[in-house]
Amino acid sequence: MSTTTTSTAVLDATGQYYKEFNEQIRELVRQGVTEFRLDNVNGQRYIATGLEGDFIFEINGLPGQDLAAFTRGARIRVNGNVQDGVGNTMDDGKIVVDGMGGDVVGYAMRGGAIYIRTDVGYRVGIHMKSYLDRRPTIVIGGKAGDFLGEYMAGGIILLLGMFSDKSDAPITGRGLGTGMHGGVIYVRGNVPEHQLGPGLRSRPVTPEDMQVIEGIVRDYATELNLDAEEIFSESFTKIRPFSHRPYGNMYVPT
């Protein structure tokens, strides 16, 4: 009888071109390795992209564009910042970033969760959607740029605005949820009406919303070692479209 030992593969990314680096990871995956620690990562693109299965990654450094794009199931922790396109079209899994996020975090994300500790860039959660039991979730501890949740069709974005480098900036930029027709954006505190995209309204959260928020916040706080109670010390606002199909009559009026 063979015994399996769980062992973490440790890879050093120093000076490695992204193709060779990702080939090493793929080769280890083929050999059955499921846990990885990637050290000295700096700008290597496409890490954990397209992986399917229950993998665990600890990334030390700064992964490049499209970290975990199209991934299904991997759990990734980044000790540091990330660049643009994290979780692009990801299907399932969890990405925890103990730092700052770039532009288009969670682009067209269809499932799983992305937690960012501090600020994020522009167009985060653009084209996010849910499908059957998949309900993608993005939590942003800091502030967001313009067009958060643009064209959002499903899932949850939770914006806290607490752990930000930008003390003077509003919690979100202009065009929040522009073109949104599904899903929900929760914001800690309030959003000025003029920051909202057209066809949206902001309302205080309901007890049912609070249940959802509480579940997400507790997990977020645990993952990032934060005080959940402090996060709950302020009320939340919910942003949704006015109607079921806000753009239904845009091109072909019925």
Binding site: N42, L62, N81, M100, D103, D119, Y122, G145, D146
Partner: peptide
């Protein structure tokens, strides 16, 4: 980071 691994502050300016 390639040329200066330790940074005092990193941020993305507003559009």
């Amino acid at each position: 980071r390639t040329v200066c691994p330790q940074l005092d502050r990193v941020w993305m300016p507003k559009a």
